[in-house]
Design a protein around this nucleic acid. Sequence first.
DNA 1: AAGTCGTGGTC
DNA 2: TGACCAAGACT
Length: 394
Amino acid sequence: MGSSRTRSPQVPGPIEPLRAHLLDWWERDGRHHIPWKLHPDGSRPGPGEPLAAYGVWVAEVMLQQTQLAVVLPYWHRWMAAFPDLDALAAASEHEVLMLWQGLGYYARARRLHAGARQLHATSQPSPQGTGDPWPRTLEGWMALPGIGRSTAGSILSSAFDRPFAILDGNVQRVLARLVAHPAPPKRELAGFWRLSETLLDPQRPRAFNQALMDLGAGVCTPRQPSCGACPWQAHCAAYAAGDPGRFPVKDTPPPVPFQVIGVGVVSDAAGRVLIDQRLPEGLLGGLWEFPGGKQEPGEAIEATIQRELREELAIEVTVGEELITLEHAYSHKRLRFVVHLCRWLAGEPQPLASQQVRWVTPDELASYPFPAANARIIAALEARVAAGSSLAAG
DNA sequence: AAGTCGTGGTC
DNA sequence: TGACCAAGACT
């Protein structure tokens, strides 16, 4: 073995005290009011007692790269609209995206929807009807779109109290500090999985995994961890080294490109505006938007808008005054949207770079799923309509 | 196996 | 206030 390779993370000392300290802390200071982790009457499930898997599944997908506080209102609205597997399987993609609107990573919604139809189709009434569509194995859950190993482990431990480990960002941070791992966890995921599995309490996997996540979210936080409140302080190598904030070690992130996007709010003589539905895959897949595209070097923004509408919709417009300019940061790029009011001149709009295009009245916009940046454009548009101004001045 | 994929909270 | 980051999965 090359001596330059990082050592796999090892459990520090006996495991039982680690489990006991963590679970004692969790009983006292953990988050015990998460709705999908309780029975409908609000009581906590006993050891081994199952929870309704559907709500857990929905929650765990929403929680991918998304904090609990953000998820809660989305989860409640979702469960009201699609209370069970059959309801979700029967829903349209439009309804699904409406309820996911603003939550981000929209592929999660499409995959959840596809997974519901998959489960619904394969669990159809065997006449003797065991009637439970929910997998009990890691492989069974990972066969569903959008479910990786960590989400599968979360669902199985949470819904059925089965002993499957998890390895989300919280757990990676807690474990990296516990052992003072000298390299980014991403480079040693297999070792961190082994560590998570080794630590997991096989008698109380549901409580243990939840405790680990609560510890990461509330005590072992990314910045300024509250080591004084930590049940693992005496076991923690990063704390012993005197600088827990130094872990987990990070790679320097790649630079994010910056682009200017010209956007047209095109109106016709009747005051309707033109929107298009983005392609089903890729960035913001399946959502609706105001059409536009990237500004080319040396190009005036009005020319960008005119060119993009010609290339992507096959229409001719006059570009009028600016409605709003806004900046928006995605994970891997930063965009500035420069939005101009436009007047339609000629050409039936064609979906050359989208799924479909549609003329709608301003008050109909609320019934389409839009990404967050477009929601701000809509707000500016509504304000102008409310003020009684013409949509295509000039 | 690095890049792609959103948004809001937080300091 | 910009930069970091979150209950990751997929290609």
